[in-house]
Design a protein around this nucleic acid. Structure first.
Lengths: 223, 223
DNA sequence: GCGGGTCTTTTTGCATGCAAACGACCGGTA
DNA sequence: TACCGGTCGTTTGCATGCAAAAAGACCCGC
């Protein structure tokens, strides 16, 4: 069964890493915004040293860009990069689903089903609902990735894990996107339960590529 | 055309990162060996701060393990982990080859061919020859990955990039493995030149999975 | 009003001091 | 002998000082 979390927040740098990562993904810092070490240190009640370390880790996650002697900025996601990101994610998560189909524990399968039921219970459009939808969706993907049992795949996925919240918000605000996402999750679960790697893999690939297309479409309309 | 190197070694931490990475991959530090910050700082003529940063980056690359308050050790590669690593690499590099087939520049194609010719010219079994073989092989894969034109794919591959030198040495000491590797590279190049994504992708997957099987076999014999 | 150059301010990157945690060692006890 | 608790040296992790570089403010000439 997949464990809930790996890090027990041992060092201060890890805590800053987790919190800052959440803040960036949560949209608290806008893409392109400068991240000054001193200000972050004050915010997190620590000094610049752990902040620097957290920023370097976030650079590895593709959430922050660091230029020597010029500091760190929140990474901007242009359409081409988002497409690139989602295609790599499709590749890796599809594999994860395929691996998981062969070995997932019943307990994890139940957890995945629980996420679907939680999503079904959410019908509103309030900020609180969107928050829960985003969190539950992340639960689904995290549980599945861990169920794949491939540490290297998990590590590779960390490089394409996070995109800023505004992108997710438009997605989860769209009723049809929401419905299709739920259906896709159910399809993936069906593949997993049947032990069919092909089916789980294909369903996941389709699911992620649909998200890619949705975002592409949204960004095209914005121009 | 793919550029030779990304980093211009701006900060001290990056220099330590590059050099220490090379030292670990080069087998200078044995798996399981402890990496004390002070000693490394002395070696690289700097202080512990940039060393710490480099170690955290190397942890992201899967070359080093850091336990809070207990320090860093060179990561050990057990058979299961090597298989995991190579399978993720197969997935990612196969995709890279497929992407490259559709867009590689003639200049890069020429560079790839040049690596094959260099390998063909090497017939001995001396340490110097092995060094060149390893370096040339890495050139081939690096050029191809950059030719794929997917920054996110490159980033993901960094998490499965390095394995310690001893593993590579046994591979390149084996004449038949060497010959098959060269043939595989030529096959991949043929796919690229034909603009056939399928062919390049399949050839690359086969190539990487063959390496996986070779190493698996070697390790099985050792027990 | 605008561009170029200089000076000030801010911010980064590195070195180092220091407290706390870890582990090795050692003596005592069952 | 095997095991347990205390002590000490070592090493980590964080805070901070400082030099150097970048960003920004300012002024001047045009």
């Amino acid at each position: 069964m997949a464990s809930a979390q790996i890090t027990i927040a041992g060092t201060s740098a890890e805590r800053v890493y987790d919190d800052l990562r959440a803040a960036i993904i949560g949209g608290e810092y806008a893409p392109g915004e400068r991240l000054r070490a001193e200000a972050l240190a004050a915010r997190f009640g620590t000094s610049r040293t752990p902040v620097r370390e957290a920023l370097m880790l976030l650079e590895g996650d593709g959430l922050v860009e660091i230029e020597p002697r010029r500091g760190a900025v929140v990474r901007s996601f242009d359409p081409a990069d988002l497409v690139d990101l989602y295609e790599v994610r499709a590749l890796l998560e599809a594999r994860a689903a395929g691996l998981a189909a062969a070995r997932i524990a019943p307990a994890d399968l139940a957890l995945l089903e629980a996420t679907c039921e939680r999503v079904e219970g959410l019908t509103g459009n309030g900020a609180r609902t969107i928050d829960t939808l985003i969190a539950t969706n992340e639960d689904f993907h995290r549980i599945l990735i861990e169920a794949a049992g491939s540490p290297r795949l998990s590590a590779a996925l960390r490089t394409v894990a996070g995109i800023p919240r505004p992108f997710k918000t438009v997605f989860w605000n769209d009723a049809s996107a929401r419905a299709r996402s739920l259906a896709a999750h159910r399809e993936i679960i069906a593949g997993l339960r049947a032990g069919s790697s092909d089916r789980a893999e294909s369903a996941m690939r389709l699911h992620v590529l649909n998200a890619r297309d949705f975002l592409t479409e949204v960004m095209r309309e914005r121009d």
